[in-house]
Design a binder for these strands. Structure first.
Lengths: 179, 179
DNA sequence: CACTCATGCGTACGATCGTACATAACCACC
DNA sequence: GGTGGTTATGTACGATCGTACGCATGAGTG
């Protein structure tokens, strides 16, 4: 029984995202999260106003973290060519094992957003970030096409339908960009 | 109380897919399906060996239906140019309201497949179909790139992030194909 | 028409869920 | 060292879930 536990709220959110990645939104429960985060069940309804509040908070944090990661890939780019390389690297990272977790969580969020406007607000902000990041380097239409391409490659990577060779990605990106 | 009801099994599967589209895999329940399909609860465990069996059956049928729809788009194509047009039309249909339902169900299936090998078998067969359909018209690498592009556009269409103009899709397809 | 048995169904059980709330634990201040 | 008020927690309730199973049912057979 420990009463002093700063950052407990944060830990709950963190654990929630981990569990979503493992068992999906469908599989998470107050009890499961509480056990994993090593907090009493009562903390769930104390820190969050019900399950929906918790999920929204978790996904909002996730989107923020993901947007930052997206932006980080382009942060170092100085030339057009480097921006293209950044897109390829982004796809590679999304397909990597480390990125797979984020990928899964992202699709869970998509599913919620497809049905609930409250979550669509989160995905909307996020997509605005990724779009604007792309538009710093490419014309609007090309940015939209690249966005779709990245998303598609990431999805196929997450389902490990095929090893997804680097050259195939790079070639597709170059064709869409038009160089 | 009606005893003679041929095709009841099929109706259950159909309703299951409808409900998955509406409330997601997480939201479906034996009782909900039974009520919607107008069958007694007992029919659920009578016709299917538990929830997992039902879901696998439903998704297998869905994949079959979806593969057929995919193939149908290319069935009429005679020239390379018509194949390109078919790809664009495919994306358009996937983003249309009618296709949105199928889209949602597909992503639900993806989520299951990402975690459970049993469902990966279903997605695997399906992707093999779409891939081979594309490879009838395009080189393997281009087929993979197109596949990703289609998937990405479909996803963005499902989240109605933007109206997704037809020209943007067509132009991207042409660039990837290389004409 | 009677009998029989595979087919199909109503119901109940145990588990798990989200949530609310009385109450315990702590801290600051007198 | 008491004490009031804030913070946090254990527990219990009602609902819902998947599943199993005894029994009703009606078609087929003689």
């Amino acid at each position: 029984m420990r009463r002093h536990d700063p950052g407990r709220r944060d830990r709950i959110v963190e654990v929630t995202l981990d569990l979503i990645a493992e068992v999906g939104v469908a599989g998470v429960s107050h009890r499961g999260i509480a056990h994993r985060a090593d907090v009493p069940l009562g903390s769930m309804t104390y820190h969050f106003d019900g399950m929906d509040d918790l999920l929204r908070t978790a996904f909002a944090r996730f989107a923020e973290h993901f947007s930052a990661s997206y932006a980080a890939h382009f942060a170092e780019a100085r030339t057009h060519e480097e921006a293209i390389a950044a897109v390829v690297a982004l796809v590679r990272d999304l397909c990597a094992d480390a990125g797979a977790r984020d990928n899964i969580v992202a699709y869970e969020l998509y599913m919620l957003a497809a049905r609930d406007p409250a979550y669509r607000e989160i995905t909307g902000r996020w997509m605005a970030v990724s779009r604007s990041e792309l538009e710093r380097w490419f014309p609007p239409d090309v940015a939209r096409q690249l966005d779709a391409l990245i998303e598609g490659f990431a999805l196929h990577g997450a389902l490990d339908v095929a090893p997804l060779e680097r050259d195939v990605v790079a070639s597709a990106v170059r064709k869409v960009v038009g160089v």
